[in-house]
Measured scan of single mutants.
Amino acid sequence: SAVVMEEGSPGEVPVLVEPPGLEDVEAALGMDRRTDAYSRSSSVSSQEEKSLHAEELVGRGIPIERVVSSEGGRPSVDLSFQPSQPLSKSSSSPELQTLQDILGDPGDKADVGRLSPEVKARSQSGTLDGESAAWSASGEDSRGQPEGPLPSSSPRSPSGLRPRGYTISDSAPSRRGKRVERDALKSRATASNAEKVPGINPSFVFLQLYHSPFFGDESNKPILLPNESQSFERSVQLLDQIPSYDTHKIAVLYVGEGQSNSELAILSNEHGSYRYTEFLTGLGRLIELKDCQPDKVYLGGLDVCGEDGQFTYCWHDDIMQAVFHIATLMPTKDVDKHRCDKKRHLGNDFVSIVYNDSGEDFKLGTIKGQFNFVHVIVTPLDYECNLVSLQCRKDMEGLVDTSVAKIVSDRNLPFVARQMALHANMASQVHHSRSNPTDIYPSKWIARLRHIKRLRQRICEEAAYSNPSLPLVHPPSHSKAPAQTPAEPTPGYEVGQRKRLISSVEDFTEFV
């Protein structure tokens, strides 16, 4: 048969007729292969192709491409040299491709048809291009793949890379869960390890502090508590009631339409708007009261037996805890006409967050109470924005700035309102402590230090009264110190430094 060459192609190359033996071998191979691939376009007849790359030819070592076609129900084999250009295909004639002069020997084609199974398996396991790669995943090629499931790999992101949580363990979102698992493993320790309690022994800490320079003076030496005195035992138990972190309780009120001037209507609300609910979820963490331990979680007086509701929101960081007394989460009882059960919590909070959804101005004093010092007013606006402002009593104007209003988005509203309420509550605590000038409020841990110092002074006084020969370590507060001759004046800087060093040991009130 003659071949018409394309323009620009090399000279004529004689194409030899395939021997009958080659056709029989390739026909047997075509019957084993699956003929249901995917359909081509209507211009080209339905056909199945599979590209198999052999590394070497037997005796020649030339890479070839073998295409199996099922045109007219008769499979045909096409061998081509890759750099050459194939002729145009037609549905009426068999596929013809040019070969190099080196394939002119018909014996070479017979060798190609009689490829060993080793070469076929190696060509099938190679990388296939384009559409033949999808075909190689079918059941027909499963014989050339190794048996057994593939090893499982770690989760992959859409980009093909490992997620960040699997790369950096410290930033993994499941870090707290692993800590819980470690605690569970520790709890399952053997009885021999049960006595080993991690941490620092208080006796060891005391020993280090006792021999430090801070205890060089007799006034700073630790003293032993009497065991037989019940009054001192009660004082030590009272110390446990003062937490070592700051605590805040903040009221949250929802004002519906037409309720801006009605205290009873505001306290009777059992739910609010959708934006109000989203605002609550951002204030803190939802907790169930019956599962809380009052000595570990500050509840601000809420009952854990269901008297004040089942849930509330709280927030904490390293040095403070805040609980929100939310009116809509507290039960509304029919027998309580004046809502006294709610007001006994909300009316005693220094700061209230008022979500004013009424469309009218909310005035300070609508919720009557002796300790309502500051109101954080949240007014929802259009386009997911809110107006946040402050209202306070006249005696609080020096501590709280009420002249600045803020426009905040719904997303950042819980954070801004919480921070403003916490700052206002700190100012309210300082303002409330002014009624007792001898006990200015600095912080909870300073209050613990003052309680310890008062307890020490009482013990020293009782020891001096029981044994008059012992001198008083600290003179009583009601006694007057003996007159001392004025010492020589020293520079102001040295006096300030000495006073600062003494105050650092005794108390921190002056620095606050």
Rank of each mutant, 00 (worst) to 15 (best):
S219Q: 14
K221C: 15
L224N: 13
S229I: 08
F232W: 14
R234L: 11
S235I: 14
Q241Y: 07
P243R: 06
S244E: 15
H248R: 02
Y254V: 00
Q259R: 02
S260K: 03
A265C: 05
G272M: 02
G272C: 02
R275I: 00
T277L: 09
E278P: 01
F279S: 00
T281L: 07
G282P: 00
L286F: 06
L286D: 11
I287A: 08
I287K: 09
K290G: 08
Q293D: 14
P294W: 06
D295R: 07
K296R: 09
G301F: 03
L302G: 15
G306H: 10
D308R: 11
Q310M: 15
C314P: 04
A322P: 02
A322F: 08
H325I: 05
H325Y: 06
I326L: 02
T328A: 02
P331N: 06
V335P: 09
D336W: 10
R339G: 14
V351T: 04
V351C: 05
V354C: 03
V354Q: 00
D357K: 01
G359R: 08
E360N: 08
L364Q: 14
L364G: 15
L364S: 15
V374Y: 04
V388M: 03
Q391L: 07
R393M: 13
M396V: 15
E397P: 10
G398A: 08
D401R: 03
D401Q: 06
T402I: 07
I407M: 11
S409I: 02
D410A: 00
D410K: 00
F415S: 03
R418V: 07
A424Y: 04
N425Q: 04
N425W: 02
M426H: 03
Q429W: 13
S433P: 04
R434P: 05
S435H: 11
P437E: 11
T438Y: 07
I440K: 10
I440L: 06
Y441E: 14
P442W: 03
P442I: 06
S443M: 15
K444M: 05
K444H: 10
I446T: 07
I446P: 13
A447Q: 14
A447F: 05
A447I: 07
L449V: 06
L449N: 13
H451Y: 13
R454F: 11
L455Q: 09
E461V: 09
E461I: 09
E461R: 11
N467S: 13
L470P: 15
L470W: 14
P471R: 06
L472T: 14
H474Y: 11
S477F: 07
S477Y: 09
H478L: 10
K480Y: 13
K480D: 15
K480Q: 14
A481Q: 13
A483L: 08
A487E: 13
E488L: 08
P491L: 11
G496Y: 05
R498N: 14
R498P: 14
K499L: 10
I502S: 15
S504Q: 11
E510S: 11
